[in-house]
Design a protein around this nucleic acid. Structure first.
Lengths: 170, 170
DNA sequence: GATTTTATGTCAGCCTTGTTGACTTTCCAA
DNA sequence: TTGGAAAGTCAACAAGGCTGACATAAAATC
């Protein structure tokens, strides 16, 4: 009882934040927060004939205009058959344009059309609004910690993809 | 250049952390981190005939022994048909026990059997191990910020459920 | 006591989004 | 010129969401 929040061994940092209860709290926070995170775009998508998979494709095509299908596959972590079904509907509906590569004509380079940009904008603005509110409520120091923990939670491959995108302007 | 991290207007807090780039960073961090968050239990579940839905049911039955079906429904946010499919297989396989309520005999109270506890333990330990590593890498201050932002991101109903669980011992 | 409401379970059917496997077409590069 | 990579397609399947309809038991209410 004498130690309070300063740590047991006097070794400097407290390890109280590593108890099973604190870990469980993080697990449940991730579960409930992710539900909120997806809720707003999901409502928009439900009105059209699209799902979360379409949103993810639109997001990353917007972030990496001209990306190839193979690259998108690696980022999304799904099979090409699964992605292809999504891409096909986006292309048919005129949201995504697929251009044959000039250097390597086997490759397809993906771009959002103006219509695709419009939907992407609506979806991401809904998501940004919630993120903005959360940032504002928590403050800049909390946001820095939020990034740190999430980054440390990623698989190394995801982390590399995340870091590669991090300093890229949208 | 002169302002650094102290903010533009001298109004106290910097608002640099609210730029669209910082919001986008949070969005992508959630996407990639959630993938890591579910990866380890998913690998265990894939060996058995279970999925993420079974994991979620096991988690919350473990956290709230004796909970009713209706309560679990509210927490998981799915339909009773969807939950029932999952519960039926867990009960058939002897991981979950469903006891008729003593006060209200319409209610079913749900408990993990020893076998269910064993699987839940394996799944949550995999998830805790990753969370522990992330906490350790980021440090206690970052963890506090991580909780704050996630909590602010939840819908109010989810937040109430989260807070109700937060101070409950497992 | 009769009626209504609540809690649960179940059947049927649908959708999205993931999977594997087999196969074709295109086309770069050795 | 031929092997193999990149892209796309078709078929089949599964998990896990959904809606709607319906059944049953028990509690609550009139």
């Amino acid at each position: 009882m004498a130690e309070g929040g300063t740590g047991p061994g006097g070794g400097g940092e407290s390890l109280l934040f590593l108890t099973d209860d604190q870990l469980r709290r993080g697990i449940e926070a991730m579960f409930f927060a992710y539900r909120g995170f997806t809720a707003d775009p999901d409502r928009i998508l439900a009105k059209m004939d699209y799902g979360r998979a379409h949103h993810r494709a639109l997001h990353f095509i917007n972030r990496m205009p001209g990306t190839t299908v193979t690259n998108l596959l690696a980022i999304l972590g799904v099979t090409k058959q699964s992605l292809n079904r999504v891409l096909r509907s986006l292309i048919e509906d005129g949201l995504v344009e697929s251009r044959i590569g000039s250097r390597d004509r086997r490759e397809r380079h993906l771009y959002l059309t103006p219509k695709g940009q419009e939907l992407e904008r609506a979806l991401s603005e809904a998501q940004r609004a919630r993120m903005r509110a959360a940032y504002r409520a928590a403050g800049p120091q909390a946001v820095a910690g939020f990034w740190q923990v999430l980054e440390a939670m990623m698989d190394s491959e995801s982390r590399q993809q995340y870091l590669a995108l991090k300093d890229t302007r949208g």
